[in-house]
Design a protein around this nucleic acid. Structure first.
Lengths: 125, 125
DNA sequence: ATACCGCTTAGAGTGCGCTATAATGCAAGG
DNA sequence: CCTTGCATTATAGCGCACTCTAAGCGGTAT
């Protein structure tokens, strides 16, 4: 199945601007065109975009995604791609730890606030 | 205990530029000065900065941190502050979910890569 | 025929969060 | 007294990731 830029935008959540920008900046390989020169995205293009979006949304910078993405059609790059993903996994684990730490601090603060409100209520019953 | 901008920078990990920028932009309240006009950070300032950094590093935008921080010395703002933190907690939970989803996709991709490498090795033993 | 729609491109602009520069000041050490 | 060294300010610049504008083209509808 093939998709227009509009459909692709809706399927991925990326704006049309962003889809064109990604192609111009070689974050994704060149997309096929129809007779009018319009972009035609394949199912595989969508899948690739979706995967890239996954790593994008978890903080991989565009420059690295570009590196990763440019290896797409070369099977000999599989070890390098695997390595990049392993490193990104590490970064995700660090982010999870960051979120947990922050959660603890926030919970403590919320408790202090609630404790304060409680005391106020007791003093003015 | 009091701290110079240099010490504060080291304690918090924020650059001196950033510390001045936060103050100029009212992300933190005005810091006391010594006789020469140099900034003097108190223990409480450090604690506040550390907390702000916690919410900053988990994605709260500077504009919101500014709102939050400007309520610091008004006890009647405690319910509003609590509410902001509850909302930020929600955002952290969403981020955790995002990370988990991404992790699953990455793990699947890594497995596919390893499976591919495995097959290659079997064909050329 | 002409108006409109959706796409195309190159290139300019935006928002965020810093980061750096330039000019100046003050105070302690040689 | 003068240099060194750290601070101060206002203001400019940067990197990232988009986001938008302007000008133009091709196919369909009136």
């Amino acid at each position: 199945m093939n998709y227009s830029i509009n459909e692709t935008s809706q399927l991925t959540g990326l704006s049309k601007y962003t889809l064109r920008y990604y192609e111009k900046e070689k974050v994704i390989p060149e997309v096929k065109r129809d007779s009018r020169g319009y972009r035609v995205y394949t199912e595989q293009d969508i899948e690739w975009l979706t995967f890239l979006l996954n790593i994008r949304q978890t903080g991989m910078p565009i420059s690295k995604i570009k590196q990763f993405s440019q290896m797409r059609f070369k099977t000999e790059t599989i070890p390098a791609r695997r390595q990049m993903l392993l490193e990104h996994k590490e970064s995700i684990i660090k982010q999870e730890e960051r979120l947990k730490k922050s959660m603890v601090a926030i919970d403590a603060k919320i408790k202090r606030y609630e404790h304060y409100v409680q005391l106020q209520a007791e003093q003015n019953p």
